[in-house]
Write a protein that binds this DNA or RNA. Structure first.
Lengths: 341, 341
DNA sequence: TTGAAAGCGCTACCAT
DNA sequence: ATGGTAGCGCTTTCAA
């Protein structure tokens, strides 16, 4: 059986549709966009639609937005680090809500692009709005994006950026929660785990700072504990913490998040440290897995803003680009006390 | 201090750059694209670059690709479910590798779009290649994308799709591994957890089928165990499994993945079931957390293809769009035996 | 009710 | 070495 040469036809344009339907390109545009300002007879509409279907016509987004002078694209950088279930749900909700408002959400894979360089790359796509989680976008970047026609730039992160709307997700509050909780439990020598993995500083540093703030002016001390996310590193750290007269005589640990908490707690238990009697441990993010440990892991529950609210902020900003940048504090943090603290 | 009215200037175009530099738009294009086929004097180059910098000029990707007749955009649907560390690393590697080959990776937020409808939406962006994980893209969709100029369509999933390249990620192999392992360990009444959460069928069904295959023709039985990812559901299931003369007298469990395994194992332990003596348990995905349980969780380690290899496949396909679709089996599965089985 | 044509920003051919 | 210009696919006046 001979392989059949299939002639791949050129991508059909609205002109092809017009030709096949025996009308002008204008009419095709009117029909396919349901333009209400103009009346097209029903038979013509049918012919046009039929022709489009037959040719498998798909409009060319670039041409359309070039002509229109703007797009409905909302751009976000694609997350470079694995994203937890919490944030993932938030993203989905956001995409869904923006979709409802007729925006197209696109995550741009900016691997290896630095701040303003990334902003340039994003600007080439002429998005109508840009959503940037974390730090990494400066006022320069915001300016580039706005000059390129972005009608809204929203940052989701620790601090606001000149010219952009901001959803302040203040991870210091997480640390404050944890610190205050441990202090109220009578703990005074508090260790704070700081992940060594790259890309986490944006969260770990504020969380550490939050603990420091909560304990400022008290008799408690805060010790920074760098930790890589491996069993070996955890074992080493646990051994150091477990020896008699041990490091700063710590009596409590805030472990950055539940995953690091779990890793370290297990290592400590293997060293014979009793939790929470000798050492209280608290994590953050309220992952399911924390409930499965024994003792059950205390944690700081984090409340993200609703995706719908953010979508509405974006829409508002797009409709009124001149408006004052909105700044909202949106990160709720509350202790979930279980058994480890 | 009076707030200063800032006139937001229009987005600068190459014509503005040309005007400011005192040259033609053609020259601007030549200079900014380093067109080698044409020689521009060094002073002119400098003037053009300077003007571009001064105006904050950013080229218009849509106009460029409209003119060129093609883009360098590789489109993937954005994952709708939280994505594990394994897959996340794979995605990053892929984006990095495609970036090196000068492609722009974009994840399209297709929430609520069904199969071919989604393909239409993607096609509007005229990507040069489309990467689709999971099922959900039919031959129709592939056809739409190709007609719209996509030079490569690659699916990553359980089975291949007519006309598209395929990276066969056969999750049956995962189930086969687990089933064979349990059987070799002398287990004969094997329960397989099937998550009730939506969106996971694409993985859970093949994994279950794999267990069945591995056990076909033996004296072992396979029991399907639906389970929602909550403590309550796990407790209920564990209670059913723990009663004397219990459900089918199961002596082993393949728990879909490590997270479900952990959830269920904890519930079983709370019921007093001894693991692995009374009931062997094995998960999948080889997450860190499995090592932290006691007993340590056995698991099926999964090997994803390298992002670099996939990037090269994409590039090859783009360069030779006529070529036969490549089909590769790319999912390695191997048992990591720890203490729970 | 429909068609002709301009023009969005860009690049590549052809002149000069 | 540089400039003029056509045209990518689309929408939207303005005319008929």
């Amino acid at each position: 059986m001979r392989s059949v040469m299939v002639q791949i036809p050129n991508t059909p344009t609205s002109a092809d549709v017009a030709r096949l339907a025996g009308v002008s390109r204008a009419t095709v545009s009117y029909v396919l966009n349901n333009t209400s300002a103009v009346r097209i007879s029903e038979p013509t509409r049918r012919r046009v639609r039929e022709a489009a279907r037959e040719l498998g016509y798909v409009p060319h987004a670039a041409a359309r937005s070039l002509r229109a002078g703007h797009s409905r694209m909302v751009l976000m950088p694609a997350p470079a680090i694995p994203v937890g279930p919490l944030y993932s749900r938030f993203l989905n909700e956001l995409q869904w809500a923006l979709g409802r408002l007729d925006y197209t959400v696109v995550q741009y894979g900016s691997v290896g692009l630095q701040g303003d360089e990334a902003a340039r790359a994003w600007a080439e796509l002429r998005p109508v709005a840009v959503l940037v989680p974390g730090a990494g976008l400066g006022p320069q970047g915001v300016h580039v994006l706005k000059r390129s026609g972005a009608r809204a730039v929203v940052t989701l992160g620790p601090d606001r950026v000149e010219g952009a709307h901001a959803l302040l997700m203040d991870h210091e509050a997480v640390g404050q929660c944890a610190g205050a909780h441990l202090y109220e439990g009578g703990r005074r020598r508090i260790g704070v785990v700081v992940p060594e993995e790259a890309g986490l500083e944006a969260y770990s540093r504020p969380r550490l700072a939050g603990v420091r703030q909560a304990l400022q002016g008290t008799d408690a001390t805060v010790t920074e504990l760098p930790l890589a996310y491996t069993e070996e590193a955890a074992a080493r750290l646990a051994a150091r913490l477990a020896v008699p007269g041990r490091e700063s005589g710590l009596d409590a640990l805030f472990a950055y998040n539940d995953e690091y908490a779990m890793l370290l707690m297990r290592a400590l238990q293997d060293e014979g440290v009793r939790i929470p009697q000798e050492l209280a441990v608290i994590g953050a993010d309220d992952l399911m897995l924390g409930r499965l440990l024994r003792p059950r892991l205390s944690t700081v529950h984090i409340e993200l803003p609703s995706g719908r609210d953010l979508a509405e902020l974006v829409d508002r900003a797009v409709r009124d680009p001149g408006g004052e940048p909105e700044v909202h504090r949106v990160l709720g943090a509350s202790v979930v006390r279980r058994e480890s603290s």
